[in-house]
């Protein structure tokens, strides 16, 4: 079995494309923020949703916001006013963000639920490979593999 770990929605299409190509069974461990449906994955890929924050929760909110999409849809639809408005919004947001000190989220701490899901998969299945679809998940996977006698190869894709 191949285990995929994916904790942000921007990587969904990579996970689907990569795992769907494989002839062997796969389990994709993912979090609520990285919404992916079983219908996207096909029958050979088992989807395991765990309750854990996404590493990139801030980014996710921006990407998923339907309001953001609507605004961008209008500003980029060809109107000069729209284009200028988007540039103004972006400039303003950029200045606000530069003025605000960066938050220091605890997002890089390996999520216990993801670690537990990886470990239980390792115990119950013959795992031949672990694929991280977000480079930030490497730390989590390393944590899960600590003290594991014969760890499978880990790849970033």
């Amino acid at each position: 079995m191949i285990v995929g770990v994916m904790t942000q929605p921007l990587r969904v299409k990579y996970a689907v494309a990569h795992l769907s190509d494989r002839p062997v069974s796969a389990r994709l461990i993912t979090v609520q923020a990285a919404k992916v449906s079983q219908s996207e994955l096909g029958d050979s890929i088992e989807l395991v949703h765990v309750d854990a924050p996404s590493t990139t929760s801030v980014t996710n909110r921006l990407v998923r916001g339907s309001a953001t999409r609507r605004v961008l849809g209008w500003t980029r639809s060809g109107s000069h006013v729209g284009r200028r408005l988007e540039r103004l919004i972006r400039r303003t947001l950029w200045r606000v963000r530069q003025a605000a000190p960066p938050s220091t989220p605890d997002a890089y701490t390996p999520a216990p639920a993801v670690v537990a899901a990886i470990r239980s998969t390792l115990e119950d299945h013959d795992v031949t490979e672990i694929i991280c679809f977000d480079v930030f998940d490497l730390v989590t996977v390393e944590h899960a593999l600590a003290n594991h006698g014969d760890p499978p190869p880990v790849r970033v894709r």
Partner: peptide, 9 residues
């Protein structure tokens, strides 16, 4: 690979 704000650990 987008991460949270602040330096990458």
């Amino acid at each position: 690979f987008p991460g949270p704000p602040g330096p990458i650990p």
